[in-house]
Design a binder for these strands. Sequence first.
DNA 1: CGCGGCATGCAAAAATCTTGCGCTTCGGTG
DNA 2: CACCGAAGCGCAAGATTTTTGCATGCCGCG
Lengths: 163, 163
Amino acid sequence: MPRSEVPLDDIDHDLLAVLQRDADQTLSALGERVGLSPSAVQRRITRLKKHGVIARTVVELAPEATSDLILAVCVVTLDRESNERHERFQQRLLDAPEVQQIYMVSGDWDYVVVFATHGMAHHNEVTGRLLSDAPNVRRYTTLFVLKPVRTGNALPTRRAESG
Amino acid sequence: MPRSEVPLDDIDHDLLAVLQRDADQTLSALGERVGLSPSAVQRRITRLKKHGVIARTVVELAPEATSDLILAVCVVTLDRESNERHERFQQRLLDAPEVQQIYMVSGDWDYVVVFATHGMAHHNEVTGRLLSDAPNVRRYTTLFVLKPVRTGNALPTRRAESG
DNA sequence: CGCGGCATGCAAAAATCTTGCGCTTCGGTG
DNA sequence: CACCGAAGCGCAAGATTTTTGCATGCCGCG
């Protein structure tokens, strides 16, 4: 339930910074980091979840531990800019588990899409189906990832943090 | 401790798929989904963590709940391709909390970098410091994100999943 | 056919999470 | 200046969940 505006104080910012790096800690451990009792931490987390600041908790896999992993960034331009075509394109991508991220962007390209597949055959199959064979894709280019230097979705909730 | 090869059976794949979407469940709930007792689930998770398949557990924030959020994808090419320069460039990016993702890629560009900042002023400050003023950046282009259609880092551990 | 190795379920024990309660702080109000 | 209500905290009891020891069942191998 994303409320319009949720006021966050310094402790909330600290807490979110910590949780975005490691959410696998007890409330006591978190409390020590932010200087609060376990129950206070818990109440804040509950509030942040209820207000939709915290969207979800997930596990991240090590890319190098996933066999034959191929990551690729594709930039895509659609044929025509009708809303309906965009909807269809997005939906098709959303339905594919190999599509890790989708960003609609400004400029020469319409979308940036990140694919995660197993082996080149799989990659070709997926991008072929979702991009090459798509009726409204005008053009796309693939940038193969040689090394995922950093992955993650941490968002800075404030300017610089310390801990 | 990433071991060389960790054999994963069907239940492991199911478990990882579930955990990558929602890690905020009790062992019993997870057990129901994958058809195992709580303790068995727990032992599998422990094993996956120890072997480095599961890298970490994190909280994801809702982009729309983060005020003034600006996401941008920058593609970057360095001046010279020496190893040392790459190291330095990567390290500088790694030190910035506003840098969400860094991919070294093949082709015309060397890197794809995703920035998350608060407001255009912040964005300019960060990209200015890390890209424009960087001594070894030859050229870069920014694709501003109009809409984050999908975010996340879920990796498919096997071909298609059902649940 | 018998012997480990391995993963499981069960249940007890340990730890963590959850919640009620009283207290303090902070503003707004009479 | 005193009073009142909202909000957030710590503490502690109670509810759940996690953790672990143990016996069992299932292969694969000698």
